[in-house]
Design a protein around this nucleic acid. Structure first.
Lengths: 192, 192
DNA sequence: CTCAAACTGTATCGATTGATACATTATTAT
DNA sequence: ATAATAATGTATCAATCGATACAGTTTGAG
């Protein structure tokens, strides 16, 4: 293998692309915006991502999952009190200067903005994986007697997804952090 | 006043524009899409809406409120059981072939997609008006002893908004209508 | 009958979009 | 050294965006 060395860092460039997509969404994030943020030229951009913006977005969403939800899902496998862990996870949507409260949920945004394409499907799949992990952790706690849910088991995933994706929009309407957190707290009471 | 007569119907044209914006959102709805759907030429378009797409969208959102939420809010003032009325309103998000389940909530979509501009602000305002009406009807029922809510009064609006805006995304993840409706039913139980 | 007012159809504007072309520079294997 | 390979920088492509120009058509007031 011969050839000139990369002048940019691949990981740093992809992380920069994540933030651009996260903030602007797939459509609004222009190739020029992305290149600028990634510190990369046009040629290098299309050399590294032959599929262009589409390929970059797909890899960006994969990396996003690895960076943010994945560590939490791993943690969730070990905790005794999954409701408290989920509460803290949901609280990030209420942190005034955090990326989640500012940019929203990467997957919900994608589901919302994308056409009926592969991205929408992938974003749904990511959220379902998260909901599945929530379900498993809660079921373990229930079986262990740690929690005593009043909500039927078959509604757990949809209820939790709806709370999460709702916050993604509600945070733009209700700016009072204490009200948002109280709503999260109240909604999670059904898990005991 | 002299002059040629309009060849198109203004109300029908605006209604057509609503559906285009509803389905595609402000950004993706191109001026050509709109003209085509409205059955109108470029000249007439910019003659009728000197502010272009922006002005058309503003009037479209106003008309949308008049067409859809307003009649329900009027009904809500008269019903004895507001919880049941709200349930039916939320159910429209689960109707497989309805515009709401297909296109989502006009206002939530706008809040989601718009930049920090006048549209976002107007969409938030519309949702707040709806939440206020929900609140008033529920408070009347509580004072009349018809319902016995377990949720603190100060969380009513945010809780109901979050349920509604959540459905706007959750409907794309959970396709089973019975699960969606059961989640709505369970969530509304807190109002007694 | 005339003429200004109002509406319409088509052609096109400059800006921006995602994506390529192509020459240049840097690196390594032989 | 030289050829092959890889990365870069700039210029530009066709398509589409919102918006406008401008000539043509229909109408009613005088």
């Amino acid at each position: 293998m011969a050839g000139r060395q990369k002048i940019y860092n691949e990981d740093a460039a992809l992380n920069a692309a994540i933030d651009v997509f996260w903030q602007q969404g797939y459509e609004k994030a222009s190739s020029r915006d992305l290149q600028k943020a990634m510190g990369i030229g046009f040629s290098s951009f299309y050399l590294a991502y032959k599929g262009g913006k589409q390929e970059l977005f797909a890899k960006s969403m994969q990396r996003f999952f690895t960076l943010y939800p994945q560590p939490f899902l791993n943690l969730l496998k070990t905790v005794d009190n999954p409701v408290e862990a989920i509460r803290q996870y949901y609280y990030v949507m209420t942190e005034p200067n955090g990326k989640f409260s500012q940019f929203g949920c990467y997957f919900s945004n994608t589901i919302f903005q994308a056409d009926e394409n592969e991205f929408k499907e992938a974003a749904v799949k990511n959220l379902v994986v998260i909901a599945d992990a929530f379900y498993d952790a809660l079921l373990r706690a229930k079986n262990a007697g740690t929690i005593n849910p009043t909500i039927p088991t078959e509604l757990w995933k949809t209820y939790l997804l709806n709370l999460w994706t709702g916050l993604n929009t509600t945070k733009s309407i209700e700016k009072d952090q204490s009200i948002l957190r109280a709503t999260i707290d109240f909604s999670l009471k059904v898990f005991g």
